[in-house]
Design a binder for these strands. Structure first.
Lengths: 117, 117
DNA sequence: CAGCTGATTCGACGAACGTCGATGTGATGA
DNA sequence: TCATCACATCGACGTTCGTCGAATCAGCTG
């Protein structure tokens, strides 16, 4: 058997909701969306995410971004959290594992916070 | 249009940083910004925020929004967190306390997540 | 004043979180 | 085959978080 798969937030459910300022969030939407904000709610994770997002081609190897002041297992732990929240995807290529942003998710969150809509 | 009070909100509140996809976040910026995301990273807080943001005039009395499935002290606790994060402001008018969104802060967060910039 | 209602603060408790070192896994190459 | 590098998982630990009931504060009104 392979590793037990963690339940990820499906990337297709991204244009989650209407902007926060235009309609009240349902309970389920608030749970799903809060999980994404929560994933960005840690300084180390936010920096990791920023490093990936601003890296050339929007993707980066772990070795390129792991200098954030915490141990390597902790970096791995945080990247997993970001992956589980649907904000990052990962792919192994040879020795290295590359992470990149899930663009539609990010756009959805941005639109959610946009007051001019 | 005849609304004369369109742009009189605190201007330098939070144009925190460049979009996440364009430059890497500094340590201090990541701490400050993560605190805001963290504030939205709880389903109850996100619903409270949504209720305020989508309420008429972008402001609401606590009594209007406190039906979110937790006790009233807990509602107050969460509103305080949102206030401390700079996402909401509050004002007492007689018996009631009104909360409203801090628009510039929200715009800053939205821009931060915008990939097309 | 006393009594009522709306809202915040306090103190406590269990659950979740962030972190680490040790260990496991998967790929490379001598 | 074995050593090494890259990354993930495990187990443990102290800290922070979300929640509640009780107590308190702040206006209103009789």
């Amino acid at each position: 058997m392979s590793n037990p798969e963690v339940a990820l937030l499906e990337p297709e459910a991204v244009p989650c909701c209407a902007p926060l300022a235009s309609a009240e969030l349902s309970v389920e939407d608030s749970v799903r969306t809060a999980a994404m904000f929560k994933a960005l709610g840690d300084p180390v994770r936010l920096r990791l995410f920023s490093k990936v997002a601003s890296h050339e081609g929007g993707e980066a190897c772990v070795c390129d971004i792991q200098d954030v002041g915490v141990s390597q297992p902790t970096v791995s732990h945080h990247l997993k959290k970001l992956r589980e929240a649907g904000l990052l995807t990962s792919e192994r290529r040879g020795t290295w594992v590359y992470y990149k942003v899930a663009p539609s998710v990010l756009a959805g969150m941005s639109a959610l916070l946009d007051l001019n809509r």
